[in-house]
């Protein structure tokens, strides 16, 4: 005998699993929370250093290139494309979770495939951006961009940029690996035998978190 949640019982009152979610999913939430603090620490230290500097490079000047068409002076266009790719792959991930609810193996595989493709596209964009900036002379410990007021800049900007986007890119990379494993497991029929696709949901939580972090990285580096 078990009760399902109804709208008027939004608080736990004992007698059943307190959060009404599976153990692994709950633990994924707590892991993501700890990961949020890691990213938060990075971004806050970036903010602290930026607040303690008299001037800072201009993101509009630094991020203005686009592949193939080159220096078009269309500021932030490329990073908007990257943001769009990541949000889009987040949508296909939710659709895969939804297909999992309906126990539709083929659809789960299709949407997982699209999600992996989106992740790889994002990584490719990031690889291009890093290569381009490296070509301009930017790297850890080297900063070719001057501050917005024309004064000489320190290497703080590039150090933080490469460390934080690198750490985020590493998360995207591991997310893609996890998604590939999920795709193979779906294909082998592991979840079909199990009777539910909750593993897809857990991988999905991680994937959305990566998207969530990018929202903050985007604001902190490209907009401010």
């Amino acid at each position: 005998m078990s009760q399902t949640i109804t709208a008027d019982r939004k608080w736990w009152s004992g007698g059943r699993s307190p959060f009404n979610v599976e153990y692994g999913k709950l633990m994924m939430w707590y892991f993501l929370m700890s990961d949020a603090f890691t990213f938060g620490a990075f971004l806050i230290s970036y903010g602290t250093i930026r607040f303690s500097s008299n001037s800072w490079p201009d993101p509009n000047h630094v991020f203005r290139s686009f592949p193939i068409i080159g220096e078009m002076h269309i500021p932030l266009a490329f990073v908007s494309l990257m943001t769009f790719i990541l949000i889009m792959s987040s949508v296909t991930m939710v659709l895969a979770v939804g297909a999992g609810h309906a126990n539709d193996k083929k659809k789960v595989m299709f949407y997982m495939f699209l999600t992996i493709l989106g992740g790889l596209a994002f990584l490719g964009c990031q690889a291009w951006e890093w290569t381009h900036m490296h070509g301009e002379g930017a790297w850890w410990g080297r900063n070719p961009f001057m501050n917005i007021d024309g004064s000489q800049s320190s290497t703080n900007f590039t150090n933080f940029f490469f460390t934080i986007t690198g750490f985020h890119g590493f998360h995207v990379f591991s997310g893609v690996i996890i998604n590939i494993i999920m795709l193979i497991m779906t294909w082998k029929g592991v979840f079909e035998k199990r009777g539910h696709y909750l593993m897809i949901e857990k991988a999905g939580l991680y994937w959305h978190f990566v998207d969530l972090v990018w929202v903050f990285v985007f604001t902190c580096f490209y907009l401010f």
């Binding site: 307190p18 959060f19 009404n20 979610v21 939580l205 959305h208």
Partner: peptide, 11 residues
């Protein structure tokens, strides 16, 4: 996307 809005308030 992460569906947290539809979970129990405790969570």
């Amino acid at each position: 996307f992460m569906h947290l809005g539809h979970e129990l308030r405790n969570l």
